[in-house]
Amino acid sequence: MGFGNGTDIHAILQPYDEKHRPPTEGTPEVGQVIQTVVPDIGQTWRVFDAQRSDQTSHASASGTIRNVEPDKDYRHKPNRLPLFKERLGDCQELLALTSKVRPCVVLAIADGIADKRLPEAQRNRARSAFMRPAALVAPMYSVSTPNEPRSVTATIAARAECLVYPQLVFLPRSGGIVRNDSVLRLDRAFWTTLPKPTELCALSLSQLRQAIMHGQLLTLQGRGVDQAYIDMVELLRGELAPEHAENLA
């Protein structure tokens, strides 16, 4: 245990599957670690005001980045210039978000709908929206160290390791894939079609860790969990080092 009272809890609750190697091509598996672009949705949104610079194909644009104006943005704009490449509609805006390639864990897979199963009259319009499979992924954030500050403090990481917060999953570093002790944010999960530069990694969570994470997801949904999960939470919280347990109920 990295932050507890000395018990090596990871030797008992193996975080990763040491025998199974998931595919690195095609569709990922539930529980697999991937590297993909994660938008920083926790930051203030910015609108990218675009002006068409290609008068022939409308495929390129320049513009400025500004704060959202609620009384003006996302409303009907009949005089908007078309940006065919982005399919910018009258009630749509382009958001400018910071993003970063991060390791993520796949929580669920939604298969695409086969072309022939789409209504023929709407097939051309619906094809791009429904044919590709999508993955629900939760991003990891590195734990801070004295020499390399990160967005997650040691106390938060310690509590995540002991299942204090159902929305956080502590994952220790593993070779060159999970390079630092990290916290998986279930509350930052998002759907993605996994476009490039996404990489599928030959690493997945153990079945036991996936089962624990399932209990966390049920808790976040306000649904009942089994007694085994409750006992696990109580056991791990008892392993939390005193300096990280301050002000906990």
Score class of each variant (00 low, 15 high):
147 N>D: 15
225 V>G: 01
26 G>I: 08
87 R>P: 06
1 M>N: 13
196 K>P: 07
58 H>T: 11
45 W>E: 07
126 A>H: 14
123 R>C: 07
202 A>R: 00
233 V>P: 02
216 Q>K: 04
179 R>H: 13
166 P>S: 11
179 R>I: 00
125 R>P: 13
14 Q>T: 06
171 L>N: 01
239 E>A: 03
24 T>D: 08
98 T>S: 11
173 R>G: 05
112 G>D: 01
53 S>N: 14
151 S>V: 05
202 A>E: 02
121 A>E: 12
156 I>M: 05
174 S>K: 06
60 S>V: 13
47 V>S: 10
68 V>I: 03
111 D>H: 12
43 Q>P: 08
153 T>L: 01
32 Q>P: 05
127 R>G: 13
1 M>D: 14
15 P>A: 03
141 Y>G: 15
14 Q>P: 00
124 N>K: 15
73 D>W: 00
1 M>V: 14
208 L>I: 06
124 N>L: 14
136 L>S: 05
122 Q>C: 13
93 E>Q: 11
178 V>A: 07
211 A>H: 12
2 G>N: 15
76 H>T: 12
184 L>V: 00
91 C>E: 09
93 E>L: 09
7 T>Q: 12
152 V>N: 01
179 R>L: 01
67 N>S: 13
101 V>Q: 14
230 I>E: 07
20 H>G: 01
197 P>F: 04
107 L>S: 04
117 R>A: 12
224 G>R: 05
197 P>H: 08
133 P>C: 07
63 G>W: 08
109 I>Q: 06
155 T>R: 00
234 E>R: 10
71 D>Y: 12
230 I>P: 01
28 P>W: 04
60 S>Q: 11
125 R>C: 15
167 Q>S: 14
201 C>W: 03
30 V>D: 03
183 V>W: 04
29 E>N: 04
201 C>H: 05
246 E>Y: 02
164 V>C: 10
60 S>A: 13
10 H>L: 05
231 D>T: 08
58 H>E: 12
83 L>W: 01
102 R>V: 09
247 N>T: 13
138 A>N: 02
83 L>S: 03
33 V>L: 02
57 S>L: 15
111 D>M: 13
229 Y>R: 07
87 R>C: 11
18 E>G: 03
16 Y>E: 12
210 Q>K: 14
58 H>V: 10
4 G>T: 01
11 A>N: 10
162 C>H: 09
156 I>K: 05
134 A>R: 15
129 A>D: 04
46 R>E: 00
131 M>W: 03
9 I>R: 09
54 D>H: 06
195 P>F: 07
245 A>I: 04
132 R>N: 12
152 V>T: 05
207 Q>N: 00
130 F>E: 12
32 Q>N: 06
195 P>V: 02
232 M>S: 03
83 L>K: 05
117 R>L: 10
208 L>G: 02
118 L>W: 07
243 E>R: 15
47 V>K: 07
140 M>P: 10
128 S>A: 01
169 V>F: 11
221 Q>N: 12
